[in-house]
Amino acid sequence: MLVELEIAQIVNRRRRRRRPRRYWVRSWLSADRRLQFGQYDTLLRELRMEDTNSFFNFLRIEPAMFDELLQRVGPRIQKKDTGWRKGLEPGVKLAITIRHLALGDKYPSLMYNFRVAKNTIACLIPEVCQAICEEFQDEVIKCPTTPDEWSLIADKFKNRWNVPHACGALDGKHVAIRCPPNSGSLYNNYKHFFSVVLLALAGDDYKFLWIDCGGLGSMSDAQIFNESELKQCLEDRAIGFPAPDPLPHDNEPMPYFILGDDAFGLRTYLMKPYSQRGLTREHLITNYRISRGRRVIENAFGILAQRWQVLLTTTQQFPAGIQDIIECCVCLHNLMGLRYVPGFTKCPT
Rank of each mutant, 00 (worst) to 15 (best):
R99E: 04
V197E: 10
D41N: 06
R34F: 01
K272S: 05
D171L: 02
Y256N: 10
K158I: 08
G260K: 02
P244M: 11
P242E: 03
A200L: 06
P75N: 01
L247I: 05
D51C: 00
N251G: 05
R267P: 00
N251E: 14
T120M: 10
Y187S: 10
A122E: 02
F264Q: 09
A95S: 08
Y206Q: 07
E135S: 14
F193Q: 04
A263M: 12
Q137K: 03
Q9W: 02
L312D: 04
E134T: 12
A95W: 01
M271F: 06
P319C: 13
G91C: 06
H249C: 03
A320F: 15
N162K: 15
T268M: 09
Q130A: 13
N12S: 12
E282Y: 14
H165R: 13
Y190R: 08
N162S: 10
L332G: 05
S109A: 04
E4R: 15
R33N: 07
F58C: 14
L69H: 01
C143P: 00
V3N: 10
C347W: 08
D148G: 09
A320P: 07
T315R: 04
L199R: 05
S275A: 15
V92I: 14
I239L: 08
T52L: 13
A200Q: 04
Q306Y: 12
P108W: 05
T52N: 15
L101D: 03
K156H: 11
N53E: 14
D32V: 09
K173I: 04
K231D: 00
Q137R: 09
N12G: 07
A243S: 15
I125P: 02
D138N: 09
E6G: 06
T314K: 14
A166Q: 07
G91K: 09
A8V: 01
P144Y: 10
L186T: 13
C213T: 12
T146F: 04
E298G: 14
Q137A: 11
E298L: 12
E139K: 03
T286R: 03
C167L: 06
A31T: 12
R115S: 02
P244Y: 09
L234N: 10
C179K: 13
N188P: 02
